[in-house]
Simulated assay, not measured.
Amino acid sequence: MPRRWRAARCGRESSSPTTRPVRSRRSRSWRPRPGGSRPTRTCGGSPGRPDLRRGLRLARRAAAVILFLVVAVAGILVPAAWLTARPGDPALYPPAPGDESVTVRLVAGAWHSGLLLPREALAQAAAEAGDGALIAVTERFGAYPALEIGWGDAGFYRAVPTIQALDWRLALKALFTPGGRPAVLHVVGVAAEPGAAFPGAGLVTLRLSRAGFRRLAAALAQSFATRDGHPVEAGPGLYGPSLFYAAQGRFSLLAVCNHWSAGLLDAAGLPTTPLLDILPQGLVRDLSWRAGAHAP
């Protein structure tokens, strides 16, 4: 068919499902020829099917773009994680065989993590160091064998107790406010076994040396904002016997609750990776890979 006829007919349907126009050699006029219908030809494609070659080309280009982005992100994040990784202190962690140790647990939820600490050991470490704020907190919750303590944005922490109550506007405001936002500490008295007290959370059990635990307690004491040497209560907590306390530090994308938990564990001698520790599950994986910790 001449090119000009093909261009004129490109993309048009046949005028009849059972006939197709042909040109008579004798009359040189167009008349229908009996016979079965023939699939129409689409521009640049094969009869009766979409342009597969064009689709394949687009798919290959999309795959190439995705691969490039993955490689580029990995090329940035992997060196960044390596450069910001904290080595830990082998003199503190893990405890030497036969040495006295203290068992603590990381409580990892969907978006937040905290530390479950034995209250008696914490009170002893606070008394040895003379940390008035920590002494007051352990006395305030003296009826409980363990304390679950977390740190976070003062507004978001109070307003979003569960993942179901998540408010993205508050979350974005907490993460991206220039200069960060005020922080609070949440302290809960825990009497039940960890699995029963936190049924929906991931628990990572860590055995710290006594010296490492004292370092953790000292870092925790520095997290409390004080007035005349006493911790500043900031209202009732979210669940169980709990209280909020005013805290040191500013909450931001570069300093979230999981970074705080990782920072206390790093003070106890554990190696951590802040870039991985932004999310609770990243912190759990980090502790598994670098500190040999395992969730039960």
Results as ranks from 00 to 15, higher is better:
166 L>G: 07
282 G>T: 12
79 P>Q: 06
35 G>P: 09
127 A>T: 09
213 F>Q: 03
225 A>L: 11
167 D>G: 07
281 Q>H: 07
234 A>G: 05
43 C>V: 03
179 G>A: 10
5 W>Y: 10
10 C>M: 12
6 R>Q: 14
3 R>G: 07
153 D>Q: 11
78 V>S: 08
171 A>G: 11
260 W>M: 03
261 S>W: 00
215 R>W: 00
185 L>E: 07
103 T>W: 01
159 A>C: 13
94 P>L: 04
228 D>W: 01
145 P>A: 05
214 R>M: 02
178 P>Y: 10
154 A>W: 02
53 R>Q: 08
217 A>T: 02
4 R>A: 13
292 G>T: 10
94 P>Y: 02
65 V>A: 13
180 G>I: 08
176 F>G: 14
107 V>N: 02
96 A>L: 11
1 M>D: 03
139 E>S: 12
189 G>D: 05
17 P>N: 02
257 C>T: 06
24 S>L: 12
144 Y>D: 14
37 S>F: 06
85 A>F: 00
204 V>M: 04
87 P>V: 13
223 S>A: 15
247 A>E: 04
233 E>I: 05
167 D>W: 03
5 W>C: 11
62 A>S: 10
267 A>L: 00
277 D>I: 10
29 S>P: 00
138 T>M: 02
132 G>Q: 12
81 A>R: 11
46 S>T: 10
80 A>H: 02
24 S>K: 04
98 G>H: 01
59 A>V: 09
218 A>Q: 15
152 G>E: 08
203 L>P: 10
283 L>F: 06
265 L>M: 09
143 A>P: 10
117 L>I: 10
148 E>T: 01
238 L>K: 11
152 G>V: 10
253 L>E: 05
255 A>S: 15
259 H>K: 02
31 R>F: 04
13 E>D: 13
164 Q>H: 05
245 Y>S: 08
99 D>R: 14
159 A>M: 13
109 G>E: 07
143 A>E: 15
37 S>E: 09
123 A>M: 01
151 W>V: 11
190 V>G: 01
2 P>H: 08
263 G>Q: 08
26 R>Q: 10
193 E>L: 10
62 A>M: 06
104 V>F: 03
292 G>I: 12
66 I>R: 04
250 R>H: 14
189 G>N: 06
172 L>K: 09
3 R>Q: 08
275 L>I: 15
106 L>T: 10
64 A>V: 08
15 S>R: 09
210 R>Q: 15
84 T>W: 06
59 A>T: 12
